[in-house]
């Protein structure tokens, strides 16, 4: 699917090949390949297939949240509570499992909780017309509090309920969790590019008043998209659970920023209406490779924090470069 996606774009952009480098996705791809070649040259461990798989496995959780954030940014919204929605969903599952509830019930309940959180965010943001940044920041605190409350602030276990998911591998090398991640990236991309619903998300993000005057039910689409984002958080919680088998309420901090960075590096703008899911995917891949490379090259973990912070700033400044030039 990702391939056909590209083919549409190359066809429609055939007329202005000059601008091909301006397509952030192609630029990102070049940076990713170039960066990988350099890191691989310095330390050949990088190219070990196990390492490559590990990189993608590491980004799977943040990657799903990046998809959620990407769709919201395209809509002209944002949700800073997605990290804590994921954790709350995970905590609900673990509490249920710890109390002897079967996985077949705990899992759907956990997912429903995450969808419900997104739905609530969506309703408040759509109906109050307040800044989503502030609303979601407040809700983030609330969801964190609920997670603390139900776990009583303790370490929780998933009782190895997701062990099967963790160990299951395709061809004995590609973990099933990685496939789930890739599949959901493709689903998000199809939804945004190929469905009426997706095109309307982009239309609202591009110009909300125009969308309203063009007969689009803006509130409904906002609520739907926040709910869809919630669903992605719930699935991310499953991947999280399968990887660590334990969870604490504090575990979600920082995920929303990683997701935001990934989407923005990938070319989705804060103003909405501009960017692609594929770009956001490449953005989060780039961050995964960078983090892995720094570890392999033995960069001090504190320095890694500094680099990660600065990348956010650089990405945002770069995404605004046209506006700076115009001035």
């Amino acid at each position: 699917m990702a391939k056909t996606n590209m083919s549409v774009n190359t066809e429609t952009k055939r007329f202005d090949t000059k601008n091909i480098l301006r397509d952030q996705r192609i630029l990102l791809f070049i940076i990713i390949v170039g960066g990988a070649l350099i890191v691989g040259a310095v330390n050949e461990k990088f190219w070990n297939p196990m390492n490559i798989v590990a990189i993608f496995q590491q980004i799977a959780v943040a990657g799903l949240l990046t998809m959620a954030m990407g769709m919201l940014l395209l809509l002209g919204g944002i949700d800073l509570s997605i990290g804590n929605i994921m954790i709350l969903s995970g905590c609900v599952m673990s509490v249920l499992l710890t109390n002897g509830v079967k996985l077949a019930i705990a899992l759907p309940v956990g997912i429903l909780v995450s969808i419900l959180c997104g739905l609530i965010n969506g309703i408040i943001i759509a109906k109050s017309k307040c800044m989503p940044l502030i609303i979601s920041l407040g809700m983030s605190g609330a969801y964190f509090g609920i997670a603390l409350l139900i776990t009583e602030g303790r370490f929780m276990s998933f009782k190895l309920a997701f062990e099967g998911l963790r160990t299951l591998k395709l061809f004995n090398i590609i973990p099933i969790t990685l496939l789930i991640f890739i599949a959901l990236v493709i689903v998000a991309s199809i939804v945004v590019n190929r469905t009426k619903y997706g095109r309307r998300i982009v239309a609202i993000g591009g110009n909300e008043k125009n969308a309203y005057l063009s007969g689009i039910n803006v509130d409904l689409y906002k609520i739907l998209t926040y709910s869809l984002s919630g669903l992605y958080c719930g699935i991310a919680a499953i991947l999280y659970a399968s990887r660590l088998d334990s969870i604490t309420a504090q575990g979600g901090s920082g995920y929303e920023l990683t997701a935001l960075t990934g989407a923005i590096i990938g070319g989705i703008t804060f103003d909405g209406g501009k960017g692609t899911i594929l770009g956001a995917f490449l953005g989060v891949v780039l961050m995964g490779i960078l983090s892995n490379a720094m570890t392999i090259l033995g960069v001090n973990t504190f320095v890694q924090e500094i680099v990660s912070g600065l990348i956010i700033v650089v990405a945002v400044v770069l995404s605004n470069i046209d506006a700076i030039r115009k001035k």
């Binding site: 982009v202 110009n207 125009n210 209406g273």
Partner: peptide, 30 residues
């Protein structure tokens, strides 16, 4: 301010109102 999605393409802008009437089903094809 009100009539266009400036960062959108000509096609996207032209089809924004007519999506339901011109495209049956859930999917659209560029």
């Amino acid at each position: 301010k009100l009539g266009l999605m400036l960062s959108g393409s000509v096609t996207e802008n032209l089809t924004i109102v007519g999506l339901d009437k011109k495209f049956k089903g859930f999917f659209i094809n560029v």
